[in-house]
């Protein structure tokens, strides 16, 4: 299943990611609601997963040996939808139906609407547990597919997250990779002002994870971490990806105001100009 797109180099990934960021702005602007900040922070991670790391096939979304991605922070749906469209899971012109009545592109990812979505999420704290279940299922069945899950740093305040992480460590699931989008902000402000999650790397280590601390916008580092995870046996891997909330749009970067607020028309125009395009 290693197709040509399955071996994209960092420069190619950067081009794809730029497309995703443009889509995120267009989609949230058109929908008039949604979460641009956490979609832009996770864009490079999602792009690296779909275009370089994961063995997936848009023609067979239910292929049993595929790798699986659970987007625990389901509000970053626009980034995943866009990357999936670029990867061939859905027509690109469907992207602008985001959040409209009858659309397959629900505000939070929905597996019963869109093939290729592994698990419906939206209520934070539940993705890691579902990923643990999928990893256990894969191990029981002797399947080679790996399970990836992406969670937010605000989501790390939720007790459910840690219960599930404990289970992943306890069961020694080396087919599980937990990726933390460490963008430092949640809805109401900075995580460390609201409810501090540090020292987060130590926490993952204490929960028995092979833990890597990387720049979540450096494709070389991201791909290196995935390779490290593949080589790790006997325990799951946690990747603490240092990211910038709103990455790529200057006036959204590190501004929690854009967590759950779409751009206005002038803002969308400005954002797209910065991303080298227009509405």
């Amino acid at each position: 299943m290693e197709s040509a797109v399955g071996r994209s180099r960092p420069e190619e990934l950067a081009e794809r990611a730029l497309e995703v960021r443009r889509d995120v702005i267009r989609m949230t602007y058109t929908a008039g609601s949604g979460h641009p900040g956490g979609s832009l922070s996770v864009t490079d991670l999602v792009t690296a997963l779909l275009f370089a790391e994961m063995r997936i096939d848009p023609a067979q979304p239910n292929w049993p040996d595929r790798d699986r991605l659970v987007l625990s922070k389901g509000h970053a749906a626009p980034a995943l939808y866009s990357a999936m469209a670029l990867r061939g899971f859905l027509p690109r012109d469907e992207l602008l139906t985001l959040r409209r009545i009858g659309s397959r592109l629900q505000g939070h990812v929905d597996r019963n609407k869109l093939p290729g979505i592994e698990a419906s999420t939206g209520c934070l704290g539940q993705g890691v547990g579902m990923a643990v279940g999928m990893a256990l299922d894969g191990r029981l069945a002797g399947r080679s597919g790996r399970v990836y899950t992406i969670l937010g740093d605000g989501e790390c305040q939720a007790g459910l997250t840690w219960e599930a992480l404990m289970a992943g460590g306890h069961y020694g699931l080396d087919n599980l990779v937990v990726i933390l989008d460490r963008n430092r902000f949640e809805t109401d402000g900075a995580t460390e002002d609201i409810m501090g999650i540090e020292p987060i790397v130590d926490k993952f280590r204490a929960f028995r994870y092979e833990t890597l601390d990387i720049d979540g916008h450096d494709f070389g580092a991201i791909l290196g971490a995935f390779a490290h995870a593949r080589a790790t046996k006997g325990r799951p891997t946690a990747i603490v990806a240092r990211t910038v909330k709103g990455k790529g749009v200057s006036f959204m970067e590190n501004q929690f105001a854009y967590h759950g607020k779409p751009p206005t028309k002038p803002e969308a125009e400005r954002a797209l100009a910065e991303l080298g395009t227009h509405l």
């Binding site: 934070l124 989501e155 939720a158 007790g159 949640e186 109401d188 609201i194 409810m195």
Partner: peptide, 28 residues
């Protein structure tokens, strides 16, 4: 972590000592 949306932030601004935004942990 939804004090802007629920509007409890108005109370938090007036009475920071009597306001606790505990983050994403509703059961707790």
């Amino acid at each position: 972590d939804l004090s802007g949306s629920t509007r409890t932030a108005l109370f938090g601004k007036q009475f920071p000592n009597r306001f606790f935004n505990v983050g994403v942990m509703e059961p707790t």
